[in-house]
Design a protein around this nucleic acid. Structure first.
Length: 667
DNA sequence: ACATAGCTAAACACTT
DNA sequence: CAAGTGTTTAGCTATG
């Protein structure tokens, strides 16, 4: 597949600045760029380069057309030699047309998902730039046609003063130059705003296969809208190796397509005929009939909706109303931002989806992934290749919690390092708030949390509880809790005084944490009932009903929670909330979720490999009970069903426990 | 406006 | 005595 080392996009401003350079020079630059990459001929031509190249060539083609017309009519231009090199430049018809990716190609790319969102974005920007280019070229063509017409008329009219033709020609060239400069200016503007091309300093993200997933129809539509302008043209030029993705996202396969392209056209260099141009003109005509900005007799330019009776009036309208001016540019920018936002959202949701699917695939056979306290650390690797994440290939017996299940870490990291937004303290612990199960979140984003200094979206209490429950004996010393924090979260490798104080504070404050003394010191355990009591439970009633709800909506819960989390995280209103199903049921399921998690954790935590087998609560001889007013209803209500089943540690204070070291240090 | 949860800081006592 | 552990209080913010 496409592999790309972290090469940066080549400088893209220089070519644009170099407006007066000849096409030859440009081609040389391109080729040199190819060669300079040595054994990995990866070429990254920026959109600005490309557009500049194209515009140069378009300009040359126009000049050549003039030249040939003059020759055909027996006229000689005294100016025809002012840029001889340019005329010798390999210029092809295919190069003249904007090399926009067809929707089919784009769709294929999307479906194959070989590009990162960032790359897609770059592509998109290039496509946008090319669309602008196309508008300009339409203008060129109009000018050509006009001039052609004029020339013909003049020829038919009879003898023309030579000077008159020359003047016209000069005027045309000046016009072209003017347009060229205008375009360059515009492209520069775009570039300056960071909309057109990647900044030189911006690291190119590694090509990482996107997780398989559905592509929203609207995005495809978006792509079509952005790219569809050149469908017919591309089809017509299909036998040429027009600019394709390999130009922007270079493959590792030998000579890049760019160089191939240039070479291929170099072979036909200088052999342009009017016939070729007419073909081009024809294909252009074909293309326009499926113009993405035109449909059902209406101009589909954003915010326009002008009615155009036929296609020609649409073209007229397009050229008149949506010419290259400040307004259109601004609208284009807005559209770009819309697309970028959508892409961002899409990529985030895609990652979520993939994580969910991975999660569900595994969890469907395993009610709850018991995070392995120790061995995971060495087992997991940074997820670089999502292709390896095939949940189906994880045969697992539900009753053997010893096998570390790490689909999450091999699959796409739910949270990517690029999505680090808030590293600082966040008050909102959305995972708590929306009952995103902490264990699965931690498991899914384990590598992320370990490597990125991002504060986990859980309360200290939840984290402490998780740490304790992950331990084979459901008990940890304070130091072990500290270690778990630092091991699991890069964030807690800093400001130790602060968060350690918070941990101690939480341990003391919440009566769900029970301090159990033994000879060696004290360990902390979790009173699950108390922990569940922390939050007001949203539901009450028949436990069996709850059970049923849980089983039938277990999959719905994380979905809803994730969506809400997504909303909270992205601060983007979710348009599809209405499609999320019965909110009441979702809430019920949400409310049930964590309770059952507690049960599952109890049921599944058989202590695995991280410590020699010891019965829990060994070596305990004293339990310090926090002196808080006991709730008389403590053991009643719907919660008792789920929490009492496995939670009955024998805390007999009179019992004599063996003096056994409780050295659980996992480090 | 109010209550609550959570975070942070800090003081203090106790233990090792 | 120092460091670690545990408890408690206070102030603040976010949220419902």
């Amino acid at each position: 597949m496409m592999q790309e080392s972290g090469t940066e996009t080549k400088s893209n401003g220089s070519a644009i600045q170099n407006g007066a350079s000849s096409a030859n020079h440009l081609l040389e630059c391109s080729l040199r760029e190819v060669r300079s990459n040595g054994e990995t001929p990866s070429v990254e031509v920026s959109a600005a380069d490309l557009t500049h190249l194209q515009q140069q060539q378009a300009f040359q083609v126009a000049r050549q057309l003039l030249y040939q017309q003059q020759q055909a009519s027996g006229l000689k231009s005294p100016k025809r030699n002012d840029k001889p090199a340019a005329l010798q430049a390999p210029v092809s018809v295919a190069m003249m047309s904007p090399q926009v990716i067809t929707p089919q190609q784009m769709q294929q790319i999307l479906q194959q998902q070989v590009l990162t969102p960032q790359q897609l974005q770059v592509l998109l920007q290039q496509q946008q730039a090319l669309m602008l280019q196309q508008q300009l070229q339409e203008f060129y063509k109009k000018q050509q046609e006009q001039l052609q017409l004029q020339l013909l008329q003049q020829q038919h009219a009879g003898k023309q003063p030579k000077e008159q033709v020359v003047t016209q020609q000069l005027a045309f060239q000046q016009q072209l130059l003017q347009m060229q400069q205008l375009q360059q200016q515009h492209l520069l503007n775009l570039q300056r705003q960071g909309l057109l091309s990647i900044q030189p300093g911006q690291p190119t993200l590694p090509l990482q296969p996107l997780p398989q997933g559905m592509i929203p129809a609207e995005l495809q539509q978006l792509w079509k809208e952005v790219t569809g302008a050149h469908t017919a043209e591309e089809t017509a030029n299909n036998n040429h190796s027009t600019l394709d993705l390999s130009t922007t996202c270079v493959t590792s396969s030998a000579p890049s397509k760019t160089s191939l392209l240039i070479n291929a056209h170099a072979s036909t260099n200088g052999q342009l005929s009017i016939g070729t141009l007419k073909r081009e003109s024809l294909s252009h005509e074909e293309q326009t009939h499926s113009h993405p900005l035109y449909g059902h007799g209406v101009c589909k330019w954003p915010g326009c909706e002008a009615i155009c009776e036929d296609f020609h009036s649409f073209l007229k309208h397009l050229n008149n109303e949506h010419a290259l001016d400040d307004r259109s540019t601004a609208q284009c920018r807005v559209q770009m931002q819309v697309v970028q936002q959508l892409e961002l959202q899409l990529s985030k949701d895609k990652e979520r989806l993939q994580a969910m699917m991975t999660h569900l695939h595994v969890k469907s056979t395993e009610p709850k992934a018991t995070p392995q306290p120790l061995n995971l650390v060495s087992n997991v690797t940074l997820s670089k290749t999502a292709s390896e994440a095939s949940p189906q290939s994880l045969p697992h017996t539900p009753t053997t919690p010893t096998t570390p299940i790490t689909p999450v870490t091999h699959g796409p990291s739910v949270i990517t390092t690029t999505s680090i937004h808030n590293v600082g303290p966040i008050r909102r612990r959305y995972s708590d708030k929306y009952n995103v199960p902490i264990s699965s979140d931690i498991a899914q984003n384990q590598e992320f949390y370990k490597n990125a200094e991002v504060r986990p979206p859980f309360t200290y209490a939840s984290l402490i509880r998780q740490a304790i429950l992950e331990s084979p004996e459901k008990q940890l010393t304070l130091n072990e809790i500290y270690n778990w924090f630092t091991r699991m979260f890069a964030y807690f490798r800093r400001n130790a005084a602060t968060w350690k104080n918070a941990v101690r504070h939480n341990l003391s404050l919440h009566k769900c944490f029970v301090r159990v003394e033994n000879v060696k010191g004290a360990v902390w355990t979790v009173d699950e009932q108390e922990f569940q009591k922390r939050r007001p439970q949203k539901i009450s009633g028949n436990p069996s009903l709850i059970k049923n709800i849980q089983t039938s909506h277990a999959y719905c819960t994380p979905l809803n929670a994730a969506l809400q989390a997504s909303m909270a995280e992205n601060s983007i209103p979710l348009y599809t909330t209405a499609s999320m199903g019965n909110p009441t049921l979702s809430n019920l399921a949400i409310a049930m979720r964590e309770e059952l998690n507690g049960v599952m954790e109890h049921a599944n935590s058989n202590g695995s490999d991280s410590s020699p087998g010891r019965s829990p609560m060994q070596a305990l001889h004293h339990v310090h009970v926090k002196e808080e007013p006991l709730d008389p209803d403590e053991n009643e209500g719907p919660l008792s069903l789920v929490t009492t089943a496995n939670h009955s540690p024998d805390f007999d204070p009179d019992r004599d426990y063996e003096d056994e070291p409780v050295n659980e240090d996992m480090e």
